[in-house]
């Protein structure tokens, strides 16, 4: 169900943005826009499909623990 909501959200957002912004900007901006949307769509879909994605918070905590003086 959440996957449906996520897909619907992205569809609605891109449709809305298409009219308002995307046909008025340059190609590079479109590329950046779509790639960012793609990354977030993938993360959200994978997360809701119960695929475990490594969390940056864990990575940060492990990196900090490796430094001296922080436990």
């Amino acid at each position: 169900m959440l996957i449906g909501i996520v897909l619907f959200l992205f569809l609605a957002v891109i449709l809305y943005d298409y009219n308002v912004y995307l046909n008025k900007v340059r190609v590079q901006e479109k590329v950046v826009y779509y790639s960012l949307m793609l990354i977030s769509l993938c993360i959200l879909l994978l997360q809701n499909a119960n695929v475990s994605i490594p969390s940056p918070a864990e990575a940060i905590i492990n990196a900090l623990r490796a430094l001296p003086g922080i436990q």
């Binding site: 959200l9 609605a12 449709l15 009219n19 308002v20």
Partner: peptide
């Protein structure tokens, strides 16, 4: 017009 329709769609979703 299309913009209004899309806004309505978003509102319904919300």
């Amino acid at each position: 017009m299309v913009k209004r329709f899309l806004i309505c769609l978003l509102l319904v979703a919300m």
